[in-house]
Deep mutational scan, measured.
Amino acid sequence: NITAAIYDEIQQEMKRAKVSQALFAKVAANKSQGWLCELLRWKENPSPENRTLWENLCTIRRFLNLPQHERDVIY
């Protein structure tokens, strides 16, 4: 289940792992930094009809659900 909290989790994970938006986007969703920036802007007004947005957030959720040491190896 995806909630608005995922946006904060993304920010916290980037700080914790000391990774850039570009690197996080690449490893978590195989996307660009610009894409992640755009995604983070949706926090203010996520559209329930935007299926692509929710699919991408689900992809990021799966990455964030990995154990921390696995995420660190991927970075």
Rank of each mutant, 00 (worst) to 15 (best):
H69M: 03
L64E: 00
L39M: 07
R16G: 08
K26T: 14
L66S: 14
A25T: 05
Q12D: 03
V19P: 07
I74L: 09
K26R: 12
A29N: 11
G34S: 11
S47Q: 15
N56R: 11
A17Y: 15
T59F: 11
V27T: 13
A5T: 15
N65Y: 05
D72A: 11
E70A: 02
N30I: 09
Q12Y: 09
M14S: 05
R41E: 12
I6S: 03
Q12A: 05
K31F: 07
E55V: 07
R71M: 03
Q11R: 12
N56L: 10
K26L: 05
N50E: 05
W35L: 08
A5C: 15
N45T: 08
Q11V: 13
E13K: 00
Q12F: 04
A28T: 06
M14I: 08
S32C: 06
W35T: 12
A22S: 11
E38G: 14
N30C: 09
A22L: 12
T3H: 00
M14W: 09
S32P: 10
V19H: 03
S20P: 02
T52K: 11
A29K: 02
R51P: 11
D8E: 13
L23W: 04
N50G: 14
F63L: 06
S32H: 13
L64H: 02
L40Y: 09
Q21P: 05
W42D: 02
L39R: 11
F24D: 00
L23V: 05
M14F: 11
N50S: 07
L66W: 06
I2S: 02
T59K: 04
L57C: 04
D72S: 08
R16E: 11
W42S: 12
L36R: 00
E44G: 11
L57P: 00
A28F: 03
L57E: 01
E44K: 10
Q21L: 07
E9G: 10
I10Y: 00
P48E: 04
E9R: 12
E9A: 11
F63R: 00
W35D: 15
Y7S: 04
I10P: 00
I60F: 05
C58Y: 04
Q21M: 10
L66I: 03
S47N: 00
A25S: 10
Q68M: 06
K15E: 13
L36S: 00
L23E: 14
T3L: 06
L23C: 08
I2P: 01
L64S: 01
L57T: 04
R71C: 11
Q68V: 12
W42K: 13
N1D: 04
C37K: 13
Y7C: 07
F63Q: 01
T52Y: 13
E49Y: 09
V73H: 15
C37H: 13
N50F: 13
V19C: 06
R61Y: 13
F63N: 00
W42M: 13
N1V: 09
Q11C: 08
Q11T: 03
N30M: 05
K26F: 04
P48F: 03
S47T: 05
K31R: 04
A28K: 00
D72W: 04
L53G: 13
C58F: 10
E13H: 01
W54V: 15
N56F: 04
W54E: 11
R41W: 05
E70N: 06
F24Q: 00
N50W: 07
I60T: 08
V19E: 04
P46T: 03
M14Y: 15
W35I: 04
W42I: 14
P67S: 06
I60S: 01
V73I: 05
K31G: 05
T52P: 08
I2C: 15
L57V: 04
L39T: 06
P46E: 15
K43W: 10
L66M: 13
N45V: 08
A28C: 12
T3V: 02
Y75L: 08
E49A: 09
I2F: 01
